[in-house]
Design a protein around this nucleic acid. Structure first.
Lengths: 237, 237
DNA sequence: CCACTTTATTTGTATTACTATTAATTCAAT
DNA sequence: ATTGAATTAATAGTAATACAAATAAAGTGG
């Protein structure tokens, strides 16, 4: 019998999550091909040394992220890549763990280019009073840190700032990006892709425009920030 | 004992999916509040008349979409809305089923405005040979249908066209939108939000620009399409 | 009043048995 | 020989029960 939780990298994970992670790794890395039928449940149980209960919960997890598809008699099949939910932060975590992150960083930067200016514009129009308070506090922190720079705390505040913008759009479909953004930033930290300066003035421009409710100015300010920081972001060198 | 599959609206669903759907409905509709602890597993088993196995698989499904969070001794909690993965097509299906779709359509249109022009630009640069073939075939179909208009087949071709653009970006993070788009289009059909004309010329402009590899022109053509069709899309009136 | 221990509750895991679905096979009728 | 309905077998789906682990809360000793 297995322990309910095993500590991995300081985080306790239940068994079925560990199993799911291991299977996901094999799928995402291409070790098992798309459309391939993975071994039957009994085989996998023996392979991972877990009960069928846990294994099935693991498979349900992966199924719901679009990686697998089960049918009686035929088995469990790896789906086409186009069905994988890359905007799921857990999946993204697994993807980053594999390594080969330059492509991931590059693709994500491309997505930010499309989304953040529009998100900033929406936030300028729709941010609630409470969200404006949070944004103010966070920008204040950025401003302070920029004067006495320290990488880790800056990155944390920077992340929170952009996260809040997504949450302030008032658009449900922008919410998932907040978490994806955090996952990426945390990866930047642990993989220590050092970033040069803070672009505090560009951030201030975004902040001011949002607080003023000027969506056009917010959009443009975000475009300016992205184009200025392009050279220093991971994946662009 | 329950049947393994029950037919609902012509589709066979396993028990744990039915249970998950029912719980998801309550969460998404706000019937159970955010941060609320839902009843214990045993209670829910009795309530839904299913075994703990199935119930737990249902909960795993919802957990992986960010709706729930379980901890021993404390129970299973509904998470904050900002953790809900709105870009999961199954979750979106459930959301649409609730009704009150005008906000959903409006938010989605806003997202399309941010993403599709950039997706078209990326597709112009990165579409593979095979993807160009598929795109050609699909546009051909659109062109044919536009001359002898029939709503359902047009919507289907229109959907496939925009779906292919997302798939042709060569950017993993754009892939999930393809499925979300399809879910939305299918909802348009069943909820019969009639759309006026085909905008075939605007579509042709996008198609030609992508085939020519002209990313700037593709982006602009997509912007033109969106601004022209804005008036007629659901949620904008 | 604080730190430590115990307890009770809830989720996590394991095991086994059985059911439902469906691909593949068999076999009869045409 | 071809078709098509019935049978078989393999695999996922469901159920029931037992026990382990985690942890909030209550209790205990200093």
């Amino acid at each position: 019998m297995q322990n309910a939780f095993v500590e991995i990298a300081g985080v306790k994970r239940s068994l079925h999550v560990q199993v799911a992670r291991e299977i996901a790794r094999k799928i995402l890395s291409g070790e098992v091909a798309q459309n391939e039928i993975i071994p039957g449940e009994m085989t996998l149980c023996e392979q991972f040394k877990v009960s069928r209960t846990s294994l099935r919960e693991a498979i349900k997890l992966l199924t719901s992220k679009g990686l697998l598809e089960s049918k009686p008699k035929v088995g469990t099949r790896v789906t086409d890549r186009e069905n994988w939910n890359f905007l799921d932060s857990q999946l993204l975590d697994w993807l980053i763990d594999i390594g080969d992150n330059n492509a991931v960083y590059r693709d994500f930067l491309s997505l930010r280019n499309a989304l953040e200016p529009e998100a900033a514009a929406l936030a300028a129009e729709n941010a609630t009073a409470q969200q404006r308070i949070l944004l103010s506090a966070t920008f204040q922190r950025m401003d302070d840190i920029s004067k006495d720079f320290e990488l880790e705390s800056w990155t944390e505040a920077d992340m929170e700032f952009h996260r809040l913008i997504f949450l302030s759009t008032g658009n449900s479909f922008y919410l998932p990006f907040a978490n994806v953004l955090c996952t990426m930033f945390k990866s930047f930290i642990t993989h220590s892709s050092v970033r040069g300066s803070t672009c505090i003035n560009e951030h201030r421009a975004i902040y001011s425009a949002i607080m003023a409710g000027d969506s056009d100015k917010a959009r443009q300010a975000n475009i300016d920030l992205l184009s200025k920081s392009k050279r220093r972001l991971p994946g662009s060198n």
